[in-house]
Simulated assay, not measured.
Amino acid sequence: EVLTLTASEAMKHNYCEGTADNIEEVIALLGVEEYTIVDYKPTLLEKFMGLLVSPYLQGILIMVIVGGIYFELQTPGIGFPLAASIIAAIIYFAPLYFEGIAQNWEIILFVLGVLLILIEIFAIPGFGVAGVSGIVLTVLGLTLSMSAGDIVILEEGLEFNLEPFAKSLFVVMISMFLSITLSLLLSQRLVKTNLFSRIALNKEQNTKDGYISVSTEQNALIGSAGTAFTVLRPSGKVLINDEIYDAKALTGYIEEGDQIKVVRYDIAQLYVKKV
């Protein structure tokens, strides 16, 4: 049970030695005769560090991190969104680390999460364990780095304090949601403005200049049978007539070794189904 006492009740039952309304009364209760009162004033650096670790600014930094990664994936090679994301990540983690709030392993969780997401997008067809694990690790890294006192060391062992973790998780999730929503809206507006034409390829590629279209030889493979050379989730590779081709499952996933049939060829992409 929780026992709640007023100041007078605490004094009556010897839970406290007295009450005071100001510093002078505290000094009088302690019986100190010679003393010097020093008012502590935070330095500009301390005020700046306090600003950097505030939940409001951290939420904005998370939005920049997520938004930068999103725009870099949408328009690879530009560099500015990725640079903004990296700078925001440094500004996010550095003050937390120097203040002793973020630990090394929490930052490593975030880095591993981002790497897993990139591997899932660029190296592994579809979206599976690596992508989900990357998202979870990224969220955990951001959340645990922000929350102080989430793990308390006691004589009996480690104790997990849920309250600071829950508050940090709320800030992270809201920031990521707002970042993704704003990124989607902003990307649609950029496409319709002249600004997008400055960073996107907007030039005709004529055959007289040496440009050629994509070969349509694979169009002849429609109706051909083969086997799944890798797992198709839904993209992967198939083996047809002793040749390996990139393909996409028409519906669902296709396991490696399953028999397949080419049903469509569209925009330089083979579409297959399991037979």
Rank of each mutant, 00 (worst) to 15 (best):
L52R: 04
I240H: 11
L186T: 14
V132Q: 03
L184W: 11
V136R: 10
P42D: 03
D209V: 03
A94P: 06
A166L: 15
E25W: 03
I153D: 02
A130P: 14
T251P: 07
T43R: 10
I86P: 03
L115D: 05
I27T: 08
G236Q: 07
N219C: 04
D39E: 15
I212M: 02
I135G: 07
Q218K: 12
V114I: 15
E106C: 06
I69C: 10
G141C: 04
E163D: 12
K47M: 14
D150E: 11
V129A: 09
K273Y: 02
A268S: 15
G31Y: 05
L232M: 10
N202P: 00
P42W: 00
G210Y: 13
G18W: 08
L185Q: 04
F177N: 08
P164R: 03
F98L: 13
V132C: 01
L270F: 13
L112S: 13
F177V: 15
E217A: 05
A268T: 04
H13D: 08
R189L: 13
Y265G: 03
T36A: 01
D39V: 14
V114C: 03
S235K: 14
L140G: 07
P42I: 01
R198I: 09
A102T: 07
R189A: 08
I101Q: 11
G252C: 06
V238F: 00
E155M: 01
G77C: 11
K203N: 07
L182H: 01
G18L: 01
G59P: 01
A247L: 04
P81D: 03
F170W: 04
F93G: 04
F127K: 10
G236P: 09
S133R: 06
F229P: 09
K273P: 05
G18H: 04
A166F: 07
S235L: 09
G157A: 08
A220P: 04
V32N: 01
G77I: 11
G79C: 02
S213Y: 14
K274I: 08
N202W: 01
Y40T: 06
I260L: 08
T193A: 09
A20K: 03
